[in-house]
Amino acid sequence: MIKIGDIALGEFPLLLAPMEDVSDPPFRAVCKENGADLMFTEFISSEGLIRDATKSVQKLDIFDYEKPIGIQIFGNEIESMREAAAIAAAAKPDILDINYGCPVHKVACKGAGAGILLDIDKMVSMTAEIVKAVDIPVTVKTRLGWDEHTIRIQEVVERLQDVGIQAISIHARTRKQMYKGQARWEYLAEVKNNPRVKIPVFGNGDVDSPERAKEYREKYGVDGIMIGRASIGYPWIFNEIKHYFATGELLPAPDLNERIRVTKNHLDFSVRWKGEKLGLLEMRRHYTNYFRGMPNFKPFRTELVTSEDYGHVLELLETIGNAYADYEFQ
């Protein structure tokens, strides 16, 4: 049984990665329904939290059905991160997660996210202060290093464990790689084989199918897998992986009716949570993924992403269901 503190996550948990502008409550809801064992909020700016910025505060919204749920924060100032940690903990998540992995320029080049991989001492000091500031388990998400020449992941895991983190998720790429090139899971195997490391180690990067999840589980010995991009528009991947682990058989791809049902649920939550205008706007990034591979879909997609009326979008989804009634996903 894999545990973070007292939180039991099963024998081999599947985690939903925190993704900016993606893993909001509506998206998390459909992932939870489809088998995600542990989820995280979008990353939240420490400076935004301590200044009570509306966008940052709204990201603290979590719901009982999501539990266990982690709130993730990022920043480059130790005092701000300590204060933000306390604010986040007051929202009563099960876990507080620290983002030491975001590779985007505006974050990393200010010394936050993956930028802190250039200053391991500061990373350790910041983590120690956050652990002392809250009374819930603290976890970390990070990368292998800034670039090929600064991969110190063994040292990072040992030192963060020593100051009190209770699990770590590692994206098996460097910051320089961004999301390109092959993920280097062999480094995760080395972490797992380190007798000094006692905390759960979750792997992230390139897991996009049940077969690959099984291969990486067996080959690299991680305690669980964190899934990000492969879940966008395809929340079914969590249950598909679990079924494959249990039976060795692949579930059939979700049919069109199921895709429309989940899309409607996602849309409904988005509109209820953020209002019709913003809810519709933020759903636009998901339609292509939910209906990926369908032939001659562009006219429908164009109408979906330009409509500003909730009722019209629901009618469009019904029309799509009728127009592609005989289509079978592979």
Rank of each mutant, 00 (worst) to 15 (best):
F74N: 00
E66H: 09
D94W: 13
I87Q: 00
I71L: 11
N76H: 02
Y65D: 05
L60I: 05
I69M: 06
P93W: 14
K92R: 15
K92S: 15
I95L: 04
N99Q: 08
I95T: 05
A90L: 13
P68S: 11
P68Y: 06
G70R: 14
I69Y: 10
I98D: 13
F74I: 02
E79G: 10
D61P: 05
K67T: 10
G75T: 08
P93G: 08
D61K: 15
I62A: 06
P93Y: 10
R82A: 14
N99L: 06
F74E: 01
Q72S: 06
D97V: 06
D97S: 03
D94L: 14
F63V: 08
D61F: 12
L96W: 07
I62N: 04
I95E: 02
A86I: 09
L60N: 07
Y65M: 02
D64H: 11
A91P: 10
M81E: 03
I78G: 06
E79M: 08
S80N: 13
I98W: 04
M81A: 01
I87R: 09
F63H: 08
D61I: 15
I73L: 06
E66I: 04
I69S: 03
G75A: 02
R82K: 15
E83S: 13
N99V: 01
L96K: 01
D97L: 05
E83T: 09
I78T: 13
F63Y: 14
Y65C: 04
A91H: 05
L96N: 07
P68R: 05
A89W: 08
I98H: 07
E77S: 05
K92P: 15
I62F: 11
I62M: 11
I95H: 08
Q72K: 08
N99S: 02
E77Q: 11
F63K: 07
D61T: 15
K67W: 13
E83L: 07
I69C: 06
I73W: 00
